[in-house]
């Protein structure tokens, strides 16, 4: 046992966009190249005619999952509160969407749904009876800008413990452990007018744990006239300062699954064939996950492709390779 590896098919969004890999191709890649079975999907990316896929689509899904002997881990679901356009959705309308998504997840064989950080606990509570009935857990995402001990997390953990229910839990996104600017995003900013001299300064800001305002002041002090829109690293800087990875250990019983966020996998200097995301700490959180006895999935969520799509086809990201490298890293950290 131990930590299990999976892939969110989010990672292959670009391959799907260009129609170079269909759903079956993506599932096959996970089985045959990564030698693992965990599959996570974005409902509105993978499921044709969401929320009412055809029988033909459902047959295709089930047969591909069976053919490669895969496990449907988590289905990521959304809450578009302006859907009706004539009013902002009420809590019970949001809960209806969540309940329907849970039923759909069940139909597809998923163990869990991931709901967004911004979904109020009240909405989740309304969906618990359906989660219980379907035996599908609801995991609320801990995404960037949230920290492991903020009100959103403690409120949910307190509720789950008081109610003694496994059906409400958490989906931490490894992006919360970002501790350096991500190069794909910095390079995008530079191609779109940001001063390249900002890059080393952004690294300083992270290293010195500056907050956003200190960082703006610091960069503008060094390069007068720098505009705030050039400082795309501020958002990720904002969360790094406050994260306590050791908290992952105690959260283990509440973790439904984990988003293995990556921006770019590069070779570790001096270690040929070994890769890391140089902007996100995996080593420390994985240590605490192991100490806490986590036996669930970490599903790769490669997100760096969006920062290269302003270039020609020859310079866009290789999603398949990025995910393969991430699994090399995870195997090593897990100790497979």
């Amino acid at each position: 046992m131990g930590i299990k590896r999976g892939v969110s098919l989010y990672s292959y969004q670009q391959e799907q966009f260009f129609k170079r890999m269909n759903l079956r191709d993506q599932i096959k890649e996970v089985r045959e190249s990564l030698d693992t079975d965990g599959i996570e999907i974005i409902d509105q990316q993978a499921i044709r005619d969401y929320p009412n896929p055809s029988d033909e689509w459902l047959d295709m899904w089930h047969s591909a999952m069976a053919e490669f002997n895969m496990k449907a881990v988590t289905m990521d679901v959304y809450m578009d509160v302006l859907q009706y356009r004539d009013h902002v959705m009420l809590y019970d309308e949001c809960a209806e969407r969540l309940k329907n998504d849970i039923r759909l997840a069940k139909k597809l064989g998923f163990a869990n749904v991931r709901c967004l950080s911004a979904v109020p606990l009240e909405v989740i509570k309304m969906a618990i009876p359906v989660a219980e009935e379907c035996d599908v857990r609801i995991g609320k995402e801990i995404h960037a800008n949230h920290v492991l001990d903020d009100e959103m997390v403690t409120e949910l953990v307190t509720y789950a413990e008081r109610r003694q229910t496994p059906y409400v839990g958490l989906v931490p996104d490894m992006g919360i452990f970002q501790y350096r600017p991500s190069m794909p995003s910095m390079n995008y900013a530079v191609r779109h007018g940001a001063n390249p001299d900002i890059i080393p300064l952004a690294f300083d800001c992270f290293e010195q744990h500056m907050d956003v305002e200190e960082a703006v002041k610091y960069v503008q002090g060094k390069i007068p006239g720098t505009e705030r829109r050039e400082l795309t690293f501020l958002r990720s800087l904002d969360m790094y300062n406050h994260q306590k990875p050791e908290l992952m250990k105690d959260l283990v019983p509440h973790i439904v699954s984990i988003h293995g966020k990556i921006w770019e996998m590069t070779e570790i200097p001096g270690e040929p064939g070994h890769y890391e995301d140089a902007s996100i700490d995996y080593v420390t959180p994985f240590k605490y996950l192991k100490e806490g006895g986590y036996e669930g999935y970490v599903d790769t969520e490669y997100e760096g492709q969006r920062h290269k799509q302003d270039q020609g086809l020859e310079n866009i990201a290789n999603e398949v390779e990025e995910v393969r490298r991430h699994h090399e890293m995870m195997r090593r950290l897990i100790g497979e």
């Binding site: 959304y78 578009d80 509160v81 302006l82 009013h87 902002v88």
Partner: peptide, 19 residues
Amino acid sequence: ILCRYGYAPAVDEEWVRNP
């Protein structure tokens, strides 16, 4: 596309009235 990641009180009502 007015897709959302949950409530955003600063703009939700405004975007219903004036997209």
